[in-house]
Amino acid sequence: MKKYIITLLLGLTGFYASAQQSDFILTYQMALPLGNTSDYISSFSGRGVGLEWKKHLLTTPVSYGFSVNWNVLYQKVDDRYNSPEEGIVADGRQYRYHNTVPILLHANYYFNEDGIINPFVGVGLGTYYINQRTSFGQWAFIEQNWHFGIAPEVGVVADVSSSFNMLFTIRYNHAFKAGNTTDHSYLGFNVGFVF
């Protein structure tokens, strides 16, 4: 029994020691729609939030981690809908919503890990849950899908305080085609606190 307790204590100590190398990050996220996403909603969005957990390797300036994010794109559109194929012409206000939830695994490489300003490059891989809704009159057209996606990013970690650091990143999010829907992409501008 005693040896189990010692093993458990050692394990907990190890966990605590490794936890010192971990970062917890909260980000405020802005998004610039690109490509097909921009055709649907072209407005820049200031509605986004992200949570990220990162663990740094001790011997190399590399970290790996996991993040969950939420970005909301929105636009009011008064354009005429004209489809000769369907034989439909329509006028009215459209309310377009595009909710994206990227759930990603990350790997980052740091260039100046001990410095006050620490630039890095990284890549995220994972899934993008996308829910796109167009409200028109009293009807709504909804598309929702899980997409496979990739998110390369560049950023800087700034050592601004003893209790937390600041993070600034630009992340290109690309969700590949899924089901009958097109691919989606946007450029994310993230500002965060690293604890």
Partner: peptide, 25 residues
């Protein structure tokens, strides 16, 4: 952050006139 995002979530139509549509087939 979550409260901020939720309170800023776009609300859509505000008036009945926003729901008026003209459609032809």
């Amino acid at each position: 952050l979550i409260a901020l995002l939720q309170s800023c979530y776009p609300g859509g139509a505000e008036y009945t006139s926003d729901l008026d549509i003209a459609i032809s087939r």
